[in-house]
Design a binder for these strands. Structure first.
Lengths: 217, 217
DNA sequence: TGTACATCAGTGAACGCGCGTTCACTGATGTAC
DNA sequence: TGTACATCAGTGAACGCGCGTTCACTGATGTAC
């Protein structure tokens, strides 16, 4: 597979791109983002992308092998903007301002999803489907978060705050799961009377309680 | 939309089905389940379903309007087998055998997903995509679980075990999210050294801790 | 400053595949007498 | 028990749409002298 770096895009022919070409490529990426936000992830034909970008299908193929590759480029770009949640976690949720740090963390997660909802959904669907390229991106994004969470659990276990019966990575996966899912779907919870703030607060508290072994003060 | 009951299937023409026809219909449903388990949810052409069922595309259309409707029938069937998790939750997780009840609950959830993994994934994807028919089924399935969880949280808040800052439905959604996600993906966690038992135990403990406000004994 | 040429960038139009869907028909099963 | 007829169940073959993809070409931009 031709590995594509965001800062060094290349035409399908392998030639480097001039400034005009870069702009066109950018228009195609942007058009795809827009379409993605407007309709289903499964309904993304080359023709429509090209039309939206004000160009032709033939041009599309100068820049991308197929729609998947384009989606991959978008997913990589979105993933790069993922906040460094792992660092926050390592800063620990204990002590008096632990809850405040947890809130900031959840908030960053929510915001990241708000900004890239469509493409992150696509990335996860493709990964669930088993596509190794999207799995890799997802793994690079979530992996460090899982590790950081698991480390905190282990620390809690050493310090006797958390039961040894809990499996650090299973717990980490559980926490990451609901963080991600609620971030992706927090709007739907409005129907149940939960605002974005409610979700942030609730997630932060469950997070602290699980990592610390007891509810925050 | 023609509402279809599992016990009273009807041909597209509206006629009732004889025993021979019922068998054919059943073969088509089964063939679809098999294909679903073998390949991506997005790759399910009528021709392949018919071939696998040992019949022809034309026959397919005697029984179903399109693949979506067929998937809907499968999803309804799978949903009917959902264990009554809500009842378990209302039985409470408190007291000495609360943890044991939580384990049983998580186990039932895991088993349900093991049995119907492919079609439940399809159901959730279709619901996420915004398809109202699949949303309805999903809602009928998860709704009672959410309500039961939220009620327990509220009870905990009345009894001062749980902070008022937590939003009952947000917390319920968080718990249901990770239960569902880990049930769907528990095999992938093997790579991180977590067995099915680890996952069951860990989920059960997080569940109890969140609903009770403190870790189980 | 102008001209010739090379390369870059873009595209209209067509081709063809896969697949959903339907039509006109055949064969199987049941029922009346 | 046999025959005629109605209805049920199933299908081969074709049609046509949507879409991915490519080809042969045009226009734009840069460079050499």
């Amino acid at each position: 597979m031709k590995r594509e770096r965001a800062d060094r895009p290349v035409a399908q022919s392998g030639r480097k791109l001039g400034p005009r070409a870069l702009k066109t490529r950018e228009r195609i990426l942007r058009a795809t983002s827009e379409l993605l936000a407007e309709r289903s992830v499964l309904d993304l034909p080359v023709v429509d992308i090209a039309r939206r970008a004000g160009t032709s299908p033939a041009t599309f193929y100068h820049y991308f092998k197929d729609v998947d590759e384009l989606a991959l480029a978008l997913a990589e770009r979105a993933s790069e903007e993922m906040p460094d949640v792992a660092a926050w976690i390592r800063a620990s949720m204990g002590g008096p301002d632990g809850l405040e740090r947890a809130r900031a963390l959840v908030d960053a997660f929510l915001e990241h999803w708000d900004r890239h909802h469509a493409i992150l959904t696509l990335r996860n669907m493709a990964a669930d489907r088993g596509d190794s390229r999207f799995l890799r991106i997802r793994q690079e994004n979530i992996g460090p978060v899982l590790s950081a969470l698991a480390s905190e659990i282990k620390r809690g276990q050493r310090e006797q705050r958390i039961s040894k019966e809990i499996h650090p990575f299973a717990a980490a996966a559980a926490l990451a799961s609901f963080l991600e899912r609620l971030s992706a779907h927090h709007r739907d919870l409005g129907a149940l009377g939960a605002t974005r703030e409610d979700i942030r607060e609730t997630c932060a508290r469950i997070l602290v309680q699980t990592l610390e072994g007891s509810a925050p003060a």
